[in-house]
């Protein structure tokens, strides 16, 4: 628990820095470090699979994609001028944040075994995964067996993303 507060502060700092900085290549690398800090937060919460994906995709692949895109354009954010913040946003966003904080008071505590998420169907997966699928990692057995339909559609989404990128960007010589 003691390690999470510095990590969360780092998260806010890197997220703000990625927006504020003018040099877009620096922004990409700050975004990568944001993903890395987020992966550390997931790992400290015990969600190692999510941390793995965040570190590999957020800090690795997404950074490369951003950089490849930047090399096709310009690196400096010269044309975008940010307009002054409207007073409605200055007033509305703190109110929204206070409402969210107020709502967060009703959330169950971390790791609460009587919360709705822990009593409905999770125990069945946890108890039967090894017996039914010989898979000790319950995350994998839920993703690939109990909920394999969702994963199938996700795979279709990834495939569609690749096809769409190829169709839009790989136009033959004009």
């Amino acid at each position: 628990m003691i390690i999470e507060l510095p990590l969360l502060i780092l998260l806010v700092v890197t997220a703000g820095g990625a927006i504020m900085v003018k040099d877009l290549i620096s922004a990409v690398f700050i975004l990568g470090s944001y993903s890395f800090v987020l992966a550390l937060v997931w790992a400290s919460l015990g969600a190692v699979d999510v941390a793995f994906v965040e570190a590999v995709v957020g800090a690795g692949l997404a950074t490369v994609f951003f950089l490849l895109t930047l090399f096709g354009t310009t690196e400096k954010d010269t044309h975008i001028r940010r307009p002054p913040v409207p007073w409605s946003a200055l007033l509305g966003l703190p109110v929204l944040g206070l409402l969210l904080l107020y709502g967060a008071g009703d959330l169950p505590a971390f790791g609460d075994i009587t919360s709705a998420a822990s009593i409905y169907i999770s125990p069945e997966y946890l108890e039967n995964s090894v017996e039914q699928t010989r898979t000790p990692n319950v995350v994998t057995s839920v993703l690939m067996d109990y909920r394999s339909f969702d994963t199938f559609i996700e795979t279709i989404v990834i495939f569609t993303a690749g096809i769409a990128c190829a169709l839009i960007l790989r136009k033959g010589g004009s």
Partner: peptide, 26 residues
Amino acid sequence: GILLTQIGVAVDVAVTGVSIAVSLSF
């Protein structure tokens, strides 16, 4: 079954990743 579908997902993701990188640098 889990192992085979995982191989399917891995092949799909690997191909798509390389494909997007090649598309972006086209």
